[in-house]
Amino acid sequence: MSKILKKLEGMAGTDSSAIMSNKRPIASTFDKDEAVILKLAQQAFTHIFKQADKADALKPAGSENIQAYDEAHLQLGQRRLLCFRIEENTFYICILPQNSDIHKAQKIIRGALPVLKKIADTSSVQTAQD
């Protein structure tokens, strides 16, 4: 699975990436030194989406598009953490280095979301069987 993540990183211009499900990585290219960033990112993005969903829920019915936010960014200094919500508690998280093309990364990762979802689904089936 890491090979697929690496390939996606090459195409999107991102550095380390991971698929996190229920707070645990099911596939990751983050090294040990970056584990703290991944953990913090997972917690932060969970909070960000929770707050966004809460704000959406408060809006009067039919007032705006009911689609939920599925992408969040956290910029730390010149680096950017990108997160795509694959399912309720499943995220794809990656690091975008300084001076990268954000638009290109967004487009490529968004295009790869069905594949990432498949990886997440396969992994959860395997976990259930184990």
Partner: peptide, 15 residues
Amino acid sequence: LEQVRNISLHAPQKD
């Protein structure tokens, strides 16, 4: 960690 400079939320067809 470095300073948090920006947090953003996106979705297609949504502000």
